[in-house]
Every structure is written in structure tokens, then in C-alpha cells.
């Protein structure tokens, strides 16, 4: 799949933003006043910035409101509904925390649940696609959720759970890569089943339909960059999980240095998740590539 910057930015930032909103909704940290304003500004900035980025790749963004109508069947529509619901509920909750010095617990829990639901629906947009075996796995939503929770815990300064969530997210990442590498073969789809000619002999793409490129090849067949996949996986794993874990577990003296270490951990995690998300798209093989003798 073509790793479009809009979807990489969207899934990375909004995952982190909704992860932070989840913890804020649970009252972790139970901040009020101007400190709460900073926390909610970061959370809403990430979540809304991500959502805005996702509209950049639309052919007709002015019709985007229609995307809220098909929640009965479409995960993309469900994501829109959940995102708006989460932002509205957490917006109210934030008003209470910032201006009225109060935490409306039930509202916070609903907002937290909707925030996680948003991340889950995002992941299901990809998971549902049988045509992309590397995405069509149970581990895909597990990966999105574990990343979001780990990032949210880091940003929320939830010291008790952040190391555990980071370790889990890192383990899920490794498992996703291991299983994903076998997904296309395990799907049973090959040029033989694609053409229906497989039982007659070995099928080879002899001549493409056109001498030039086309939408399908540009959108679904991304070969450039895959050659560095192993190196990028190392970078994603170290930046996303290993280094942040090290940074938050290092015992340091003084509040300033502690905050610097926490900020570095967040930035490192963000860079790592963005790299992982780039690989998520760049390495995903759409079966339509088989028709062109590519993958």
C-alpha cells in the first residue's frame, strides 16, 4: 500500500491523542485549572490534528459530513461517529476540570470508553480488508489499542502503568511483524486463484494492461522502501518502545530533569510509532498487485 503521509499522521497523532483522553477521562492525572488546560490542549490538538490530516486525502472533503451516516455497516463511518462523540463528551468533561474545578466521573468514563472505541474503529477500517492479508488479522486492533494506551500513559504521566503498557505494546509489535510476514501466503491467494488458471500450471504475468502506470499500481503496489524494512523495524522498535521504557525507568533526581526525560520519552515514542505506521502501510501487500505480477 502507498504510505500516504495523511493517513500515517492521522493514525499516529489521533491514536496518541485519544490514548491521552482515555487516561484523562479516568481521572489520571486528576488535573484542574490551567494545568488541566495544557493537558486537554495537547490531547485535543493531537486527536483533532490527526482527524484533520485524514481529510487531506479525500477527493471531496466538503462532503465529509456524509461519512457519519453509514455506521450500520461501515467502520469508517463508525470511526467518525465515535470520534465526534469522544471529543464532545471529553470537551464537556474538560470544561468541568478547567473552569469548575470538578471531575464529572461518569462523563469521564463515557468519554474514556468512546476514546478507546475511536481507536478500535480506526483499527477495524484496516482489519476488515480481506484484500490486504497483512492487515486482516486479530493482531491489528490489538496493536492499535496497545500503542494508543502506551502513548496515552506516557503523556498522562501514569508512572505505574506506563512501563507495563510500553512493554506490552512492544511485544505486540514484534508479534504483529512475525505473523504479518506470513499473512499473504497464509491467505491462500496467489496469481493462480486470482486468474482461476492455477490448476492448469504455473501462471506468470506476461503483459500488463497498459505500458504506463495507473491508480491501482500507485495506490496498492509500493515496492520502494521495502528493502530497508528490517532496519526501519529496528528503528521503530527502539524509538517506540525500548528507549521510552529506558527513559522512564531511569531513576533521576529533580523535577526538571524528570520532565525532560518524560518529554524525550514521548517524542521518541511518537517517532517510533510513526515509523511503525509507515511500515504498516508500505509493507502491506494488496492482492490486486498479483494481477500485475507484483506484491
Amino acid at each position: 500500500m502507498h504510505p500516504a503521509p495523511s493517513v500515517i499522521i492521522f493514525t499516529t497523532l489521533s491514536g496518541l491523542g485519544f490514548g491521552l483522553l482515555f487516561f484523562l477521562g479516568l481521572g489520571q492525572p486528576a488535573v484542574t485549572g490551567s494545568v488541566a488546560f495544557v493537558f486537554y490542549a495537547i490531547a485535543f490538538g493531537l486527536a483533532c490534528g490527526g482527524l484533520l490530516a485524514s481529510t487531506f486525502h479525500l477527493g471531496h472533503p466538503e462532503r465529509a459530513w456524509r461519512a457519519f451516516t453509514q455506521w450500520k455497516t461501515s467502520w469508517l463511518s463508525r470511526e467518525g461517529v465515535c470520534a465526534v462523540g469522544a471529543l464532545a463528551v471529553m470537551g464537556l468533561y474538560a470544561l468541568g476540570a478547567i473552569f469548575m474545578d470538578s471531575h464529572w466521573t461518569l462523563l469521564g468514563w463515557i468519554g474514556a470508553a468512546l476514546s478507546l472505541a475511536t481507536v478500535f474503529t480506526t483499527s477495524m477500517i484496516y482489519t476488515q480488508l480481506k484484500a490486504i492479508p497483512r492487515w486482516n488479522m486479530e493482531l491489528t486492533p490489538v496493536m492499535f489499542l496497545s500503542f494508543s494506551l502506551a502513548g496515552g500513559a506516557l503523556l498522562a504521566g501514569a508512572e505505574a502503568v506506563a512501563p507495563w503498557l510500553l512493554a506490552i505494546a512492544g511485544a505486540v509489535q514484534l508479534a504483529y511483524w512475525a505473523k504479518g510476514d506470513k499473512a499473504l501466503v497464509a491467505s491462500g491467494t496467489n496469481l493462480g486463484t486470482a486468474t482461476g488458471l492455477g490448476d492448469r500450471g504455473s501462471v506468470r504475468a506476461f503483459e500488463p494492461p497498459h505500458t504506463g502506470s495507473n491508480y491501482l499500481l500507485r495506490e496498492f503496489v509500493h515496492l520502494v522502501g521495502r528493502k530497508h524494512a528490517q532496519k526501519l523495524r529496528m528503528i521503530a522498535f527502539v524509538l517506540g518502545f525500548a528507549l521510552p521504557l529506558l527513559l522512564i525507568l531511569t531513576p533521576v533526581q529533580g523535577i526538571v530533569i524528570k520532565h525532560v526525560f518524560a518529554a524525550l520519552a514521548v517524542l521518541s515514542h511518537l517517532a517510533g510509532v510513526a515509523t511503525s505506521r509507515w511500515l504498516f502501510f508500505a509493507q502491506a501487500e494488496h492482492v490486486v498487485g498479483l494481477y500485475y505480477g507484483k506484491r
Partner: peptide, 16 residues
């Protein structure tokens, strides 16, 4: 007239 051009339907089609 209702299509927003998100491309998800093309992603979901195994046949291109």
C-alpha cells in the same frame, strides 16, 4: 454526488 473520494472501497476490492 455523495462520494467523498476516500478510496476505501477501492482498497476493499481484491480485483482492482
Amino acid at each position: 454526488d455523495h462520494c467523498i473520494g476516500c478510496g476505501l472501497c477501492a482498497w476493499s476490492c481484491p480485483y482492482g
